[in-house]
Computed example of a mutant assay.
Amino acid sequence: MSRSWSPRPRRRYYPPPPRSLWRRLLDYALTIIVLGLLILLAARLDRFETRKAEGAAIVNDGDSLTLGTERIRMRGIDAPEYQQICRKDGADYACGRLARQALVRLISGNPVTCSGWQRDRYGRLLGDCKAGGKDLNRAQVEAGWAIAYGDYETEQAVARAGKAGIWAGTFDEPQDWRESHHEGPAERRHGTLASLGDALCEFFRFR
């Protein structure tokens, strides 16, 4: 016995009701807010633009130099001040001058390139510096002529164990020496973690 077949009834299409005025105003407001956030994000990212300086270096001391008109403070390390005195084998010696000489030897007359986006309280660029394929920040710590100041803790541990540079004797940490010689309050550390904190502060700074 055959069964009769009948087509299914078609559903009628009903267009969606028009959006209310308040709904349209809300959509416009959300669009404006999203565009505003995108503009704000673009403006904030400009603050983290990496600055780069390169050229022949004038070495000021063991962790700072000048490239053209740009003064550089090497990021993540702290070397003895130029006039600082340390002690080894029962005698004083000019560790600050030796730290500067060590940096001069590392550069060996090669062009220096430094890059970074932060500045210290004196307006110097906090830079990661290279010359002749060498990471100067890291090399100064490895040679024992700068201490870790936010980065390079592993390199410092090796230098200290090997009694390299200032670790061969006794010395005041550079920040303590500066404070005792009335050269301003202790400078805060400026390694990778400090850079992340600065980035967050800078992003939410409204000026």
Rank of each mutant, 00 (worst) to 15 (best):
R3I: 14
S4A: 13
S6T: 13
R11E: 11
Y14S: 11
S20A: 07
L21N: 12
R24N: 09
I33A: 15
G36N: 07
L37K: 05
L40C: 12
A43D: 10
L45Q: 08
R47G: 10
K52E: 14
E54S: 15
V59S: 00
D63R: 04
L65H: 02
R73K: 02
R73P: 05
G76P: 00
G76S: 00
A79D: 04
P80W: 10
E81I: 08
Y82L: 15
Q84R: 11
Q84A: 12
C86Y: 02
R87Y: 12
D89H: 11
A91N: 11
A91C: 06
A91Q: 14
Y93L: 05
G96Y: 01
R97Y: 08
L98I: 10
L98A: 09
Q101K: 15
L103N: 03
L103R: 06
S108W: 10
S108G: 13
N110A: 15
C114M: 04
S115P: 02
S115E: 14
W117R: 02
Q118E: 10
R119S: 13
G123Q: 03
R124Q: 05
R124C: 00
R124A: 02
L125G: 02
G132Y: 00
G132T: 04
K134E: 03
N137I: 00
N137T: 00
R138H: 05
R138Y: 04
A139G: 07
V141I: 05
E142F: 00
A143K: 12
A143Q: 14
I147F: 09
I147N: 12
G150S: 02
E153G: 08
R160N: 11
R160D: 06
K163E: 09
A164I: 06
A164F: 09
W167M: 10
W167D: 05
T170C: 05
Q175D: 13
D176A: 09
E179R: 11
E179Q: 15
S180W: 13
S180L: 12
P185I: 07
A186H: 14
A194S: 11
D198Q: 13
D198W: 12
L200D: 04
L200Q: 06
F204G: 01
R205H: 15
